[in-house]
């Protein structure tokens, strides 16, 4: 367990370690301390997460199948070569990106607005805060069934409402080729709202009130206060939650699958569905693992770019 030596050029806003303290004994003690703090988390992760994952990744280079007494051998990158020519998989990749990016962005924008409202001292705050968490209180199995009822073309409250307002009331939300994807995106946003809102709300709570007051004294308006005080303080948290939301959204397919089964005409077919079909239905676990590895590589690359840009901005802010 070697904790890396704290660098003198502290990269993020002021590391706690001051150069003057860098002395051998002190550092060793610090390392031991850090090890002790990290160990309890590390242990279950190694046993129950790293180990299965390493096995899973290793499968991507074999021709393993889920059969009784399987014997499989190392096939190098064959699975990846085959995957490169799988047009179904890559087609769904585009839909997966639209889905994950739009859900993540909408979640962030809507949750930021909601968190601000919940944090601005309106009446009935404790009630509204609980109401905002309702999507969390419904198990996923039920979520899909409820939304199917709401979207129902001839017996759903959504169309009934539109009809009452004199708008077209015969839209077949989940089955129309043009509305299916937006409709499932709305459900995706709904499901993830509490998560993002609570996270941002906690972040807002962390901003010392004095900062806002100081800004107000300087005569800053609401928008100026947001850009000058709220947003910079919230930045690390926004970066964290959007990355995770993106991963989760990209990774989820069961909600959409229950809503539309990938239809109509494949308009809501997400890439993870292919991994599932290949792994469990075709029992080609090796090939499926290759799909998993590709998904990981793509998503991690995207996030690395995103987080790097966040990181660089942080530095710029600090220097400026």
């Amino acid at each position: 367990m070697t904790a890396p030596a704290p660098t003198t050029t502290a990269s993020a806003p002021g590391g706690p370690v001051r150069p003057t303290r860098r002395r051998g004994g002190m550092e060793r003690a610090r390392r031991r301390e850090a090890a002790a703090l990290v160990m309890p988390s590390l242990l279950p992760i190694l046993v129950l997460s790293v180990a299965p994952l390493v096995m899973g990744i290793a499968l991507a280079f074999t021709d393993a199948r889920l059969v009784r007494h399987p014997d499989y051998e190392f096939v190098g990158v064959d699975n990846f070569v085959r995957l490169a020519g799988n047009s179904f998989f890559w087609d769904s990749f585009r839909i997966g990106m639209i889905w994950a990016v739009s859900v993540t962005i909408l979640q962030l924008v809507l949750a930021l607005g909601l968190a601000q409202l919940l944090n601005s001292g309106l009446r009935l705050q404790s009630l509204t805060r609980v109401l905002a968490l309702i999507p969390w209180a419904m198990p996923p199995v039920v979520v899909a069934i409820m939304w199917k009822m709401i979207y129902s073309p001839n017996a759903g409250p959504l169309n009934a409402l539109l009809g009452a307002l004199g708008l077209p009331d015969d839209i077949n939300w989940l089955a129309d080729f043009s509305t299916a994807l937006p409709a499932v995106i709305v459900v995706g946003v709904w499901v993830g709202m509490p998560q993002t809102t609570v996270t941002l709300l906690a972040g807002l709570q962390q901003i010392p009130g004095e900062l806002h007051e100081a800004a107000s004294m300087d005569g800053a308006g609401a928008w100026r206060r947001f850009t000058a005080v709220t947003w910079p303080s919230l930045r690390p948290i926004v970066a964290s939650i959007t990355s995770l939301n993106f991963i989760w959204n990209f990774n989820s397919f069961s909600l959409v699958y229950v809503l539309t089964e990938g239809g109509p005409g494949g308009r809501t077919m997400l890439p993870m569905l292919f991994t599932y079909l290949e792994a469990f239905k075709n029992r080609n676990i090796g090939y499926a693992a290759a799909m998993g590895v590709v998904l990981v590589v793509v998503v991690v690359l995207l996030l690395a770019v995103y987080l790097r840009s966040q990181f660089r901005d942080d530095r710029a802010v600090q220097k400026g």
Partner: peptide
């Protein structure tokens, strides 16, 4: 604590969340 350890930690967190559960 910044540096390699942090990168490894953060990287791990991301990978562990992306890899499909059905394969694990």
């Amino acid at each position: 604590l910044k540096g390699a350890f942090r990168v490894a930690g953060v990287g791990w967190i991301l990978v562990s969340q992306v890899f499909p559960v059905i394969l694990i």
